[in-house]
């Protein structure tokens, strides 16, 4: 599938960052507005799939040398770790905590352990989707 698709490639270069930024926005917005780990992760994965379509497998693997299975594992660790972390404070598994913190530049920011959990979800979703697509794609 080595077609010299110049238009797609050029457009992808621009669009990719927009999608990626949008996916990150979706991820962080999740607590207040539509979005969250699942959607953010899927959107990021979608961006990467677009990249795979525009360029070929090898090029993408060179640009982003990520082992997506390890990414999945790290995501799971994040989620389980957040859940287990609550045990350290003598509260049941998966109890979240939140607080408003004043940070130097950002001003009033609410911090929430649910974000850590969601990061896990985000990573797992990207890892899983990309593992699936990549393994099938590589199998010729």
């Amino acid at each position: 599938m080595r077609t010299n698709d110049l238009i797609l490639q050029t457009v992808t270069k621009v669009i990719l960052f927009i999608i990626l930024l949008f996916s990150i926005h979706l991820f962080f917005a999740g607590h207040y507005y539509p979005g969250g780990g699942f959607i953010g992760g899927l959107m990021t994965a979608g961006a990467l799939v677009l990249l795979l379509l525009a360029f070929d497998m090898k090029t993408v693997a060179n640009i982003l040398p990520v082992n997506y299975r390890i990414m999945t594992a790290i995501g799971l660790l994040f989620s389980i770790g957040t859940g287990a972390g609550s045990l350290l404070f003598n509260v049941p598994f998966l109890t979240h905590a939140f607080n408003d913190v004043y940070l130097p530049i950002l001003g009033k920011t609410s911090l929430h352990t649910a974000v850590l959990f969601d990061i896990g979800v985000y990573l797992v979703v990207i890892g899983v989707t990309m593992t699936i697509i990549q393994t099938i794609g590589e199998d010729e």
Partner: peptide, 22 residues
């Protein structure tokens, strides 16, 4: 402390489901 109910259910109230799901 969230406003998006669906997401709060997923990560907080029913976080265990989500954990198993991933």
């Amino acid at each position: 402390a969230g406003k998006n109910m669906v997401n709060v259910i997923l990560v907080d109230f029913r976080g265990f489901d989500t954990l198993f799901e991933i």
